[in-house]
């Protein structure tokens, strides 16, 4: 969903740039609450993994492809504020070095995939996790649902921006229908990848998963003898 230069006019890009800069500034302060010596390396790893995952376009039919956006994945693994920072770094490197996503559209892309992706994904994750049993096995399915919803929501926000500041005279309804339709299908891929990755990390190191923290900390109170 990397927006190139030119899709949106200058005023809209300036506004999304201000939104992104404000979001990153708040995230820099809030991420402090999510990061300590143990979880800081996790943020680097999650960002690197999302960069890699975004290179894997999977076909979704009719000559279209999608790839992991990673907002929900990052938010569940390292927390939404740190996740937004991770996505911002990924998008910055992509725009500056890979010519993927416009430099003047960096604010738009951070807003869509960083802020909207992470916070939509995390909000839905928390809602679903609240109704599922309080077990670590509930974390991956809840993350998958968050991922599924986050992609079409980001597509909707793009369409809104396009309706306000799109440079081409194209009917907004047609863009909305096509964007939401395709990104719902891409969202299924996002859900599968997010679910599998979160399940793997929960299986290996549940204590490093931000979204599972409350379950693991309760369990750590048990005293166990080293059996082998």
């Amino acid at each position: 969903m990397h927006v190139p230069d030119g899709f949106l006019d200058a005023p809209t890009s300036v506004v999304t740039g201000v939104v992104a800069a404000g979001g990153v500034a708040v995230a820099l302060r809030k991420a402090r609450g999510e990061l300590d010596d143990r979880t800081a390396p996790m943020a680097g790893l999650v960002a690197a993994f999302i960069f890699a995952g975004q290179m894997i376009n999977f076909p979704v039919g009719a000559g279209t492809s999608g790839h992991l956006l990673g907002g929900a994945l990052a938010a569940v693994l390292v927390g939404p504020w740190t996740g937004a920072l991770c996505l911002s770094v990924v998008l910055l490197v992509q725009a500056l070095f890979m010519a993927d996503g416009g430099v003047t559209a960096l604010g738009t892309n951070i807003t869509l995939m960083g802020l909207v992706g992470c916070f939509t994904g995390y909000a839905v994750f928390r809602l679903v996790a609240a109704v599922l049993p309080r077990r670590t096995s509930s974390i991956a399915p809840a993350a998958a649902v968050g991922a599924l919803v986050s992609v079409p929501v980001a597509a909707c926000v793009f369409t809104l921006l396009f309706a306000i500041g799109g440079t081409a005279p194209v009917d907004t309804g047609a863009v909305l229908t096509a964007m939401v339709g395709w990104h719902t299908v891409i969202g299924i891929g996002e859900a599968v990848v997010t679910g599998l990755v979160v399940a793997s990390v929960v299986a290996a190191r549940p204590d490093l998963v931000h979204g599972a923290r409350h379950l693991v900390e309760a369990r750590e109170l048990e005293i166990r003898r080293a059996a082998a």
Partner: peptide, 9 residues
């Protein structure tokens, strides 16, 4: 081995 088709947007 990734798909070279255009992405959704």
């Amino acid at each position: 081995y990734a798909s070279s088709h255009p992405d959704g947007l």
